[in-house]
Simulated assay, not measured.
Amino acid sequence: MDLPRSFSIREGDLRILNPIDDVKLATLGRVIGLRPGTSILDLCSGKGELLCTWARDHGITGTGVDISTVNTAAARARAAELGVADQVRFEHGDAAAYVPEQVFDLAACVGATWIGGGVPGTLDLLERGLRPGGMVLVGEPYWRLDPPDEKTWSACHARSRDEFRDLPGLVGLFGECGWDLVEMVLADQDSWDRYAAAHWLNLRRWLDANPDDELAGELRQELTDDPLRYVRYRREYLGWGVFALLRR
Score class of each variant (00 low, 15 high):
residue 142 Y to D: 12
residue 206 W to L: 00
residue 117 G to F: 05
residue 21 D to T: 06
residue 181 L to G: 07
residue 37 G to Y: 10
residue 13 D to G: 01
residue 236 E to Q: 12
residue 73 A to M: 11
residue 3 L to V: 01
residue 11 E to D: 14
residue 140 E to H: 11
residue 95 A to I: 10
residue 169 G to F: 11
residue 188 D to F: 02
residue 174 F to C: 14
residue 6 S to E: 14
residue 155 A to M: 08
residue 77 A to D: 15
residue 27 T to Y: 02
residue 201 L to K: 05
residue 151 K to E: 14
residue 204 R to G: 12
residue 100 P to M: 12
residue 41 L to R: 13
residue 86 D to R: 11
residue 112 A to F: 11
residue 84 V to H: 03
residue 228 L to E: 13
residue 35 R to K: 15
residue 227 P to F: 00
residue 82 L to S: 07
residue 131 R to I: 06
residue 211 P to F: 06
residue 228 L to H: 09
residue 237 Y to A: 01
residue 74 A to M: 05
residue 149 D to Y: 03
residue 76 R to V: 04
residue 216 A to E: 03
residue 136 V to D: 02
residue 58 H to P: 03
residue 74 A to R: 11
residue 61 T to G: 06
residue 40 I to S: 08
residue 170 L to S: 07
residue 68 S to W: 02
residue 193 D to N: 01
residue 3 L to W: 00
residue 185 V to Q: 00
residue 207 L to C: 05
residue 134 G to N: 05
residue 92 H to Q: 14
residue 243 F to M: 10
residue 136 V to N: 01
residue 154 S to M: 08
residue 171 V to S: 07
residue 228 L to I: 02
residue 108 A to I: 11
residue 32 I to Y: 04
residue 235 R to H: 00
residue 100 P to I: 12
residue 50 L to A: 15
residue 168 P to K: 03
residue 100 P to E: 08
residue 84 V to L: 10
residue 17 L to S: 07
residue 101 E to G: 15
residue 179 W to F: 02
residue 12 G to A: 04
residue 211 P to S: 08
residue 92 H to N: 14
residue 208 D to I: 06
residue 24 K to P: 02
residue 107 A to L: 07
residue 132 P to D: 08
residue 44 C to L: 03
residue 34 L to F: 01
residue 12 G to W: 00
residue 64 G to F: 04
residue 72 T to S: 09
residue 203 L to C: 02
residue 41 L to V: 09
residue 5 R to A: 14
residue 222 E to C: 03
residue 122 T to Q: 13
residue 112 A to L: 04
residue 229 R to S: 13
residue 202 N to K: 04
residue 76 R to G: 13
residue 142 Y to R: 07
residue 124 D to L: 13
residue 52 C to Y: 01
residue 221 Q to M: 07
residue 164 F to I: 05
residue 8 S to H: 06
residue 210 N to S: 09
residue 245 L to N: 00
residue 112 A to S: 15
residue 174 F to A: 12
residue 182 V to N: 00
residue 103 V to K: 13
residue 66 D to Q: 04
residue 111 G to M: 00
residue 18 N to H: 13
residue 83 G to A: 07
residue 172 G to L: 09
residue 18 N to R: 15
residue 99 V to R: 15
residue 125 L to K: 12
residue 130 L to Y: 05
residue 107 A to T: 15
residue 160 S to R: 09
residue 124 D to N: 09
residue 2 D to Q: 00
residue 142 Y to S: 08
residue 212 D to T: 12
residue 40 I to H: 11
residue 123 L to G: 11
residue 106 L to V: 15
residue 168 P to V: 11
residue 16 I to D: 02
residue 1 M to I: 07
residue 181 L to D: 10
residue 69 T to G: 12
residue 225 D to Y: 01
residue 27 T to C: 03
residue 36 P to E: 11
residue 141 P to E: 05
residue 109 C to Q: 12
residue 21 D to V: 09
residue 127 E to L: 05
residue 21 D to G: 09
residue 145 L to P: 02
residue 243 F to H: 09
residue 247 R to L: 14
residue 122 T to M: 08
residue 96 A to H: 06
residue 126 L to I: 00
residue 23 V to A: 14
residue 16 I to E: 11
residue 169 G to Y: 11
residue 167 L to I: 08
